[in-house]
Amino acid sequence: MKRKSRSFAALDILYICMMILPIVAAIVLKVLTKPISEGISITGAQIYLTVPMPIQDLIITESQINSWLVMIAIFGLCLFLTHGLDSRKVSTRQHVAEWIVEKVDAMVLDSMGEYFRGFSSFIAAILALSGFSSLMSLFGLYPPTSDINIVAGWAILVFALITYYKFKCGPITYLKSFTEPVAFLTPLNVISEVATPLSMAFRHYGNVLSGTVISVLIATGLQGLSKLVLGWLPGFLGEFPLLQIGLPAVLSIYFDVFSGCLQAYIFAMLTMMYVSGGFPMEEYFAKKEKLKNKKMEAN
């Protein structure tokens, strides 16, 4: 077997560094800037920098920095997985990359249909960004998804996509879609249209944040309980955190790992359903056919 060349290995190391260094940088930044506080408490994202702007000050918080670091890490992961693709000699990492692409393609094809096949890269990006952002809490970092500003940004992007696809048949069809099924339901339809991005943002952020809140409450409760059980012992033994060993980790498996991945899946699934559901497919193709026929007649 031919040995891999030196430049190949060097690039590999570069990509692996690109995956790991952002996480390390985030941990270092957190350790350096974290204010010293007593005990366990619930805090929002930390503000690093405030840039004065004409209308409103631009605030750079922990969640923005963390989400950019996650993006860099995912970029490194993608470069690492797709490095050295070969159609004859398939390596393990190529298998992984192919598996991801095939799974997402099948998912998009299954729930959106043939016309939206090109959406699979966007959906994969949403899945990876949301999933890895929620998993940041495993490193003790602030997960960007528990800040509503980040998730609301994604939800507004999805809303723009939905509206774009609803506009495909022209503004008249778009406005008409609000009066269905009965004309007097129009206000309700407008409200539900506005509620779409709102509920998507609230759902994702609420789930991640509620996990954090419950974890903190239980950790505080366990602290009190272990003080109650061992508090009468003298010296070091009295402060030994007996009940805090291992028990919070069980919760962390549900709230950090399972819930984070589930929310990423649900956000991607809802994106697909809303985009493909809002697109008036039959009318669009009928219109296209009409235009084609007109052109033929004109010729």
């Binding site: 609230f202 759902r203 952020y205 609420g206 789930n207 509620s210 899946y265 649900i266 699934m269």
Partner: peptide
């Protein structure tokens, strides 16, 4: 079922958001 549960959860999460706003 997971999809449906996530959508049914929305009303609860609205309440959660309001509770968090009221507390913090």
């Amino acid at each position: 079922m997971l999809m449906g549960c996530a959508i049914a959860e929305t009303t609860g999460l609205y309440a959660l958001v309001i509770a968090i706003l009221l507390i913090f």
